[in-house]
Amino acid sequence: MGMNQNRRVVCAGLVLAPLLAIASPVLAAGGTDSEREERWQDLRQSIFGERPVEDGAGLITLEAPARALDAALVPLTIRIAPEHRDRIAAVHLVIDDNPSPYAAKASFGPAGDPAVLRLRVRIDGYTNVHAVAETKDGQLHGTVAFVKASGGCSAPIGVSDEVAMQGMGEMKLRPAGPDTQGEATLLIRHPNFSGMQMNQLTRTYTPARYLDLVRISQGGQTVLELAGDISLSSDPAIGFAYRPGEADAFTVLATDSDGASWQESFPIPAHTQ
């Protein structure tokens, strides 16, 4: 990416929520293995401090395409092995070479199930993607996938800003198929402007405006709380698992970086067994 965009990135970094504000310099996509490792160690330090990230083999997996079909919409799936699910408090997603690398943090509540988390992200260049599981006692276990992509963060959304913002905050809950109990996908209409997309009328960059928090709960108990960032694709989709509870509805609260908020309720898909 060009220098212009790197400057944009710095600007975008300043307005991010404190959780996600990482002032690391952006390296050009590419680089040697040792540069990538150095980059990751910088990020790890910024996000997790002195805590080591252990090899998460057998505990956490990350499914990502080796080559993105659409750099602005790369589907990722993070899974936690059954025997470890009760120990996991959160999952962190880091796209190392993205302008704002800390893409998401999903925290699981009492009604949540860390078994699976599906997100769609923007990927700006060739990069490592790290998924890190955090246990309730603060241990970290990570895994990594390498993804080849180009320009996902600056790619135009494809319609005008005005059209992209139509219906902002509309939501839909899609249950998983009959073979998959206890999973659903939440869709939210939101352009999730990255701050790196050109506004067609003003010829300036559309300011970053993105979903920064999505909380899904059932009967007052949190299922999942997702802190998001500009790396989530427009019209974010969150695939999640949940534990069957007493309540018959999910409540979803979503807020964005401009302070707008939306709330919806959805019937919990019936378990057939």
Binding site: S150, G151, A155, P156, S160, Q197, M198, Q200, L201, R203
Partner: peptide, 14 residues
């Protein structure tokens, strides 16, 4: 015109 204004620079760079 609007589509080129939005995407033109991105295409041009690629």
């Amino acid at each position: 015109g609007a589509a080129l204004a939005a995407r033109g620079e991105y295409y041009q760079r690629q």
